[in-house]
Design a protein around this nucleic acid. Structure first.
Lengths: 149, 149
DNA sequence: ACAAAACACGACTGAAATAGTAAACTATTT
DNA sequence: AAATAGTTTACTATTTCAGTCGTGTTTTGT
């Protein structure tokens, strides 16, 4: 049930990009240092997200990564599916794949279906914009608190 | 996000035990053959579930495994926590452990918290009895359908 | 008493996934 | 041309997963 670090780093990088959305590309070293991970590793994750058109890149000086679409048009579901391979808790409820032949006699399937539905609800109802908004607000609160003390 | 086979086999074995609840212990070879897995492997899973008092055992001839409590008093959450180690999607929202020091500045945390809440809702609201009931009903439907044809 | 049934425990293994690095590219701008 | 920055492939170490094996110990039927 655990989410890989791939997913965590990748998702957070996408939120970082959302914060700078509209201000031109952000260079890999900048993104990597925001999270304290190696450039090579993060690059690997962003590459996967580029393939499915979540991010786009500009090469050369002043180049970098940026979101391909408005952050409100990118769901967490989309990002995690790519990084995680699939967001299914068990293969037999994976809408992408072909299910399981014992499906109709599996005593746990009803549970898995319900669980998967709830998970997909959250993941597809949450956009990158949502996360970025929360994030910006939270940082503001922290700054305010510091200003008052 | 994937559930281990440990969890799937273990959970299904517990549902099997629920079906026989009140009729004395069920021997390991019987349980193992119900799912087509090795006795050694299933024994390992049941051992973990015995430690936390989900199943109890009787040794010797005519011995076997049975649920320690009424199936309505055992939640899926309880079973999966043991088999999976934890049902947390990320360490930082694991109620058992001590969280993450970057919690207040993590852009993905609000999402993880919401997701975890929904997952725990499902897992702790579902009892083994619920699964067993569905399972028995489903088998009945299959038999009826056969009878009519 | 003793053999058979049945659970108990720990060690072990092979394969796969995860996490991450390194190096040698190619493209773009100045 | 030089510097910047993304691209690609290959590689490796570690951990997790799935599963087996062997050797116990307990109980019961005869």
């Amino acid at each position: 049930m655990r989410l890989s670090t791939r997913s965590r780093y990748g998702l957070k990088a996408i939120v970082d990009l959302a914060v700078y959305y509209g201000e031109g590309p952000v260079a890999l070293p900048v993104l990597a240092s925001l999270q304290g991970i190696s450039e090579s590793y993060l690059e690997q994750l962003l590459r996967a997200l580029k393939k499915v058109n979540v991010v786009e890149t500009v090469r050369g000086v002043q180049g970098g990564y940026s979101l391909s679409r408005d952050p409100s048009q990118i769901t967490v579901q989309e990002v995690l599916s790519v990084l995680e391979g699939s967001t299914a808790v068990v293969d037999c409820v994976d809408t992408e794949s072909n299910g399981c032949k014992n499906a109709c006699t599996c005593s746990a399937r009803p549970l898995f279906l319900k669980l998967q539905t709830k998970i997909n609800d959250v993941l597809s109802a949450t956009s990158i914009q949502d996360l970025a908004d929360d994030y910006i607000q939270q940082k503001r609160r922290l700054l305010d608190a510091k200003g008052l003390s």
